[in-house]
Design a protein around this nucleic acid. Structure first.
Length: 279
DNA sequence: CCCTGCCTGCTG
DNA sequence: CAGCAGGCAGGG
């Protein structure tokens, strides 16, 4: 489920609670979620270490341990992290439990089991998670119209598919690509190399602006996060097009359309996002 | 470019 | 029952 704003929200909520905590041990209910190394080694290497801080890169979350090792995870579609008391009822589809020194637990729940964990040793070159192939962060000042111009030149695929391409920009998924294109008035199926400089400038500005807006709308206390089971994404009411096909465009009142682009469901306003290229 | 697999659950 | 779901890798 989570895209960049949700992963960042999780990082912000969990980091203060996890900082300086010791991982006393790990219980694996479903070894499939450990991509590397072997699940037994994963547990052995993590056990006894302390958590130094959490970082995010695109949709990846990293738990940095005090000796320089790092646990990296990707929540994919339905992954979820929750800090609970040890006696808290274990939710269905809980695959991994980290037992913390303060009696709390860090639990990984994932209905569809697409999410993955990796453990990289201090200094170990990351050739397996995919982080190395990510494009820049959307908040990196490198994201300008000129950067977009450079990476989109010659790209005949749609601008929506390019926004979803993690090697072009890291962290945007199906929700926020639709929201960003709506905000910038760009028809999602437009070929990426057809965008004008003005449109690229609009995108370069709106991408970080929209993502920041949705990160802030997601803000939640640790208590409410636990009550919501880690899936209470509070920015959903602020989505303008995603999930609103058939409803009225908030700007012009036209009926929002749904189509499929690059195999992904896409919602747009036929009036605010014209198919024709502005001259 | 499209297709499939990976999984379960919800909706119509 | 089919179709769909906020992701990504791999294959043709």
């Amino acid at each position: 489920m989570p895209e960049l704003p949700e992963v960042e929200t999780i990082r912000r909520v969990l980091e203060p609670q996890l900082k300086n905590q010791t991982i006393q041990g790990v219980t694996i209910h479903h070894p499939q979620v450990i991509a590397y190394p072997e699940p037994d080694n994963f547990c052995r290497l993590v056990g006894g270490q302390s958590i130094h801080h959490l970082s995010r890169r695109g949709k990846f979350l990293s738990i940095h341990l005090t000796d320089g090792d790092r646990i990296i995870l990707h929540l994919r579609m339905t992954g979820c992290l929750l800090i609970t008391p040890a006696d808290f009822a274990v939710a269905k589809h809980t695959h991994l439990i980290f037992h913390l020194g303060n009696g709390q637990e860090l639990r990984f729940t994932d209905t569809r089991r697409f999410g993955r964990f990796w453990l990289l040793k201090n200094g170990e070159k990351d050739t397996i998670t995919g982080i190395e192939r990510l494009g820049p962060e959307p908040f990196d000042p490198i994201l300008t119209a000129a950067y977009l111009q450079k990476v989109l030149t010659g790209k005949r695929k749609s601008i929506k598919e390019c926004l979803l391409d993690q090697s072009i920009l890291a962290g945007i998924g199906n929700i926020y690509s639709d929201e960003i294109l709506y905000r910038t008035g760009i028809y999602p199926a437009r070929s990426a190399n057809s965008l004008s400089t003005a449109e690229l400038e609009a995108l370069a500005g709106e991408i970080p602006r929209a993502l920041s807006f949705y990160i802030e709308k997601n803000a939640i206390s640790p208590e409410d996060y636990l009550l919501g089971g880690g899936t209470d994404y509070r920015n959903t009411p602020f989505l303008q097009v995603y999930g609103h096909a058939g409803e009225n465009c908030p700007r012009c009142g036209s009926t929002l359309c749904r189509t499929v682009i690059g195999g992904r469901s896409s919602v747009y306003c036929p009036e605010c996002q014209k198919q024709t290229i502005p001259s």
